[in-house]
Design a protein around this nucleic acid. Structure first.
Lengths: 221, 221
DNA sequence: GCACAACCGGACTGCGCGGTCCGGTTACGA
DNA sequence: TCGTAACCGGACCGCGCAGTCCGGTTGTGC
């Protein structure tokens, strides 16, 4: 947070990175339940070192989540220049799903608790923003119906991730199939029925996950 | 399991039901994390009584889940006589989502662990069967594209539930909107693109959640 | 080459929860 | 009425894990 933290010593930085890598790998393999002891061991450092870098297991998780979200956002930006706006959008959706499939448990965490964390909230908003840009272009290009919003799409995609994770291990092809159905859902079809209600907004989601007093305090510390 | 268990004494049966009701209510309010102590207290019984009726917290949860699934299946059957096959199908989907919204955490549990339980597996298969019947009728009536399978639909619906639970507390209308999108996804539109792969089957899902040796033993006990 | 930051890693604490035990009590049901 | 099944509920156990402490060690940066 405070930029005044003097740069880490070389070995400290190295260890920090090792911890992130080890945690990431273990979380992928076995979920968030892996113990800190094992993470430290896999990283080849002592437990003390882990807690020096990340005072709390949650902090460690959050660091990984944020890094992953930023990667996705960056990828989305590169698609803004793509010639076919529709394909760009659907490509982004594929990418998001692919990433969430890899790091399933991490995004579970985001959904349930971590939107209370300010940094994660910001990273999330960035992704939504990027998606919104891609969606707007796709609408202009006539590839997507005009009455769906970014959160509509994001919810569908999140849903696909969740549902797919139940059986993706044995049938990865199913994910693509589900995405095809999402595509059918939001494409212009000529026989579209109107959608109920209004498009949900980012604010709606954030309102449902208020930052806790604890995280606010933490952020200002 | 064994039908030879002699009927419970009146007060025992009463307590059993109280426990189910209390657990159900608490799970709805605060998720599966509520402790057994609190459940017993809310039911107005001692902890010993809880464990006599349900040797394990998991058993308690499973009992509730199975009851809920059976209710949904029964409702589905009543729709088989409805005049409009398309509306019947979509009505069933609304119903499923509504139920899952109420008992969010329970179905999380199912997805993650409980398909290993034979009874739950059977109840799940029944629901899929019912959905399949409704879907077939809707296809014959020309309301739904012919290349989607019951599991395709179920996955979409499950996805909607998951995604919605993230913000349903503040915006219940969003769920209906997502269901409209699901409807758009599987309706005949004239401009349908082919779907990747083949329709997933119940067997695909079950294969991904093999019954554990433990549950097999438990079922035969 | 030296001072000190960073690391090691075992021992320890605290916590919460599921599950067990049991002696004393209640109320069902025949 | 009476035998007994079922209940009560406090005490207790075990477990696993996050997080702390600390004395001894290593290796970085100046």
């Amino acid at each position: 947070m405070t930029p005044s933290e003097r740069a880490l010593r070389a070995d400290a930085e190295r260890n920090r990175q090792r911890l992130l890598d080890a945690a990431q790998a273990l979380f992928r393999e076995r979920g968030l339940d892996v113990g800190v002891a094992e993470i430290a061991q896999r990283a080849g450092v002592g437990r003390g070192t882990l807690f020096r870098n990340f005072p709390t297991k949650q902090d460690l998780i959050a660091a990984i989540v944020i890094a992953r979200m930023k990667e996705a956002t960056d990828y989305g930006r590169t698609l803004l220049d793509a010639p076919d706006a529709g394909e760009a959008l659907f490509g982004f959706l594929e990418e998001i799903v692919g990433r969430q499939q890899l790091d399933r448990c991490l995004f579970d965490a985001v959904a349930h608790t971590f939107l209370a964390n300010q940094e994660i909230r910001a990273a999330h908003a960035d992704i939504v923003g990027g998606l919104d840009d891609l969606l707007s272009r796709a609408k202009e290009a006539g590839a997507v119906r005009s009455d769906v919003g970014a959160m509509d799409v994001l919810m569908l995609v999140k849903g696909v991730c969740e549902a797919a994770s139940a059986l993706a291990t044995t049938e990865p092809a199913v994910v693509g199939r589900q995405l095809d159905l999402v595509r059918a859902a939001i494409s212009v079809s000529g026989t579209d029925r109107p959608l109920r209600g209004r498009a949900p907004t980012l604010a709606d989601v954030e309102r449902a996950h208020p930052p806790t007093p604890a995280t606010v305090a933490e952020a200002s510390a």
